[in-house]
Design a protein around this nucleic acid. Structure first.
Lengths: 142, 142
DNA sequence: GTTACTCCCGTAGTCAGCTACGGAATCAAG
DNA sequence: CTTGATTCCGTAGCTGACTACGGGAGTAAC
């Protein structure tokens, strides 16, 4: 379990990360995952680092980063260009915070809607929509 | 400002919502925005409700709802099927909460990264990536 | 050493969400 | 009543992120 063979084929890696083989190959083509050591025969072998990277991609993606952005994040990995790194991180952080705020607002809206729905005698006025129509200026962000 | 003419053409509406005309027409085709009163001549006129709806769509979209989901949300507008509404809202709420949690985690990670970056003597070890590689099980959600 | 599974690699297709195009009709100005 | 911008509508194209396909080569099991 914690003793992972340092050589998985792409299929095993796919299973381990619960992604498709094709997806991994796609990430390779996009330069998000390195194609490892040129094979002796001709089959590549992946290690835990590769797996970690796939996890990273998944998480970041789920959090709303595009593959391009993830690529940028990954470029920071070497630790060089720390300034760049920080700038990117700061922008992202800002974005994140706005998103969190919006989501929280949405959460409480939805929550109170659910509450009201639950106890409503008058099911004619579920006010989700109304409360979301307020013309807030959403930064068209990501 | 608060005295909006109750008749904008699609072009004006587009400007008011800062969306493209084509986008609005696309939403109409998808049934997210109604095409208003069959025109006398043949040009449609939109009111503030339409604008509000566009705001709604934008916001919801930014918050991670797909157009299909937005469609569902919008179907609740009439206030009927309150149960359905509540179920949908509850599912979304759940989703939202998981997302907020993940984003917060990411936020603090990024935040401490930025801090560390800022005061680091050793720019060789920006630890964003490392901290994101932890294999947390992201629900592949949305 | 044949069978059956993977792998490799390139190319092509899919889905969501737009965005652009083209041609006819309409409307507003002058 | 002509000019020029808009609208209308259908259809086609684009971007991001996959997903599938096809054919040849490697490899493991019997």
């Amino acid at each position: 379990m914690s003793e992972k063979q340092c050589s998985m084929t792409i299929g095993v890696l796919a299973k381990a990360s619960s992604m498709g083989v094709e997806t991994i190959r796609y990430y390779q083509r996009r330069g998000l995952v390195a194609e490892p050591e040129k094979p002796y025969g001709s089959i590549r072998h992946y290690d835990e680092q590769a797996l970690a990277r796939l996890h990273f991609i998944r998480t970041a993606q789920w959090l709303g980063f595009s593959l391009d952005e993830i690529g940028e994040l990954l470029k920071l990995e070497d630790g060089a260009h720390c300034d760049e790194a920080r700038a990117l991180a700061e922008r992202k952080l800002d974005d994140l915070r706005r998103k969190i705020a919006a989501l929280r607002q949405m959460e409480s809206t939805l929550d109170s809607l659910v509450e009201r729905c639950r106890c409503s005698e008058d099911p004619q006025r579920c006010p989700i929509i109304h409360s979301l129509q307020g013309k807030r200026d959403v930064p068209r962000a990501d």
